[in-house]
Write a protein that binds this DNA or RNA. Sequence first.
DNA 1: TGACAAACCACACATTTGTGTGGTATAATA
DNA 2: TATTATACCACACAAATGTGTGGTTTGTCA
Lengths: 201, 201
Amino acid sequence: MEKKPYLTPKQERVLNFIRKRIGERLPPTIREIGEELGFKSTGTVRDYLKALMQKGLVRRMNNKSRAIELTERAGFNKIPIIGTIMAGKPNLAYEEIQGYVDADDLFLGRLGFDDVFALRVKGDSMIDAGILDGDVAIIKKRPNADNNDIVAALLDNNEVTLKRLRSKAGKFHLEAANANYAPIFEEFKVIGKLITVIRKY
Amino acid sequence: MEKKPYLTPKQERVLNFIRKRIGERLPPTIREIGEELGFKSTGTVRDYLKALMQKGLVRRMNNKSRAIELTERAGFNKIPIIGTIMAGKPNLAYEEIQGYVDADDLFLGRLGFDDVFALRVKGDSMIDAGILDGDVAIIKKRPNADNNDIVAALLDNNEVTLKRLRSKAGKFHLEAANANYAPIFEEFKVIGKLITVIRKY
DNA sequence: TGACAAACCACACATTTGTGTGGTATAATA
DNA sequence: TATTATACCACACAAATGTGTGGTTTGTCA
């Protein structure tokens, strides 16, 4: 994992402002950056952007308004994954960062939202697969899945369940991950495949 | 939860394109929308934007480039939580949307990233709490926690573990959620509290 | 029939925004 | 000492982008 290069305090401020604005949904224009940071010339801002680009923190598209992107390196949206943390230090020093999780990535990746929906898990039928009551299951719409995939399936009574798809002698059925529940052999339709489970405490 | 108002197919396409672009980081300009959707006049696009604004799906700022925002209603970043899905319909008709999960919200809320980090879970010591090997645990930095909270703790050997915090007779110790692991009574320091678990399939 | 919304187009024009050139001053580095 | 990086400014210009006016056509609803 590449380390963030040294930035001057001012450069840091520029980067932070861009970060903030992107977080608020709309990257700033050059003049907006200048206004915020108190620069009277667009040239000044461009000097900063050039510096940030050279340090690999920022990417831009020519002649496009607001087309400022932060790179991997800039660590926007990245949550550090930590292995071992050095003791002694009072506040966490990330000495052992194993990598970064991209918040977006981790969550949905680049799926787009059209083919994704969520189910709130009810009950304990998947408890042995580590899916608990109240968890949110993110499902990607698909009309089929493979053996052993966990799927959202539509049953005859119009209910949706989350179960593991199993094939036996060419025939598919659904299995809970909990010995207290019997396999389901009735008619069902796969509506999507489980891609992510999220649990909030 | 307000329902999304009726949109014509074309309006839907415009909205989707905007959604897509915002998802990709940069909202489109009026002309970019027109290009994508095959409109030869910026006026046409503005008509669509006006319609979408009147229906409360889009917000704009005057004279600002790319300043298109989607409102709550437009369901950007919202993943529908579905209870029961009507059968018969070939593609999912969201007749029973129980609400929406805000992707950002669900994931981190508005914590900001400064006091949050992630741990990749190793091993099966928390399996009975539905936390599996490979899961990503999102931890909010805190020097303390309450009884029964699941915490990231720093042990004397400089390792970080995810365990449940227990107090007994005024003394805290750590407990795994797996009968195969003994409680930990040695010295430790709480470094944060588990707030979210994410698992990707 | 009349009114209205949806769906378009063509342009002219005003702003916003990005680009480029050419400066100044200071401090650190080789 | 020459060079380089940082840290600014002023402007002119071009390109991108938003706005506004004034159309046409089609279908629906009262």
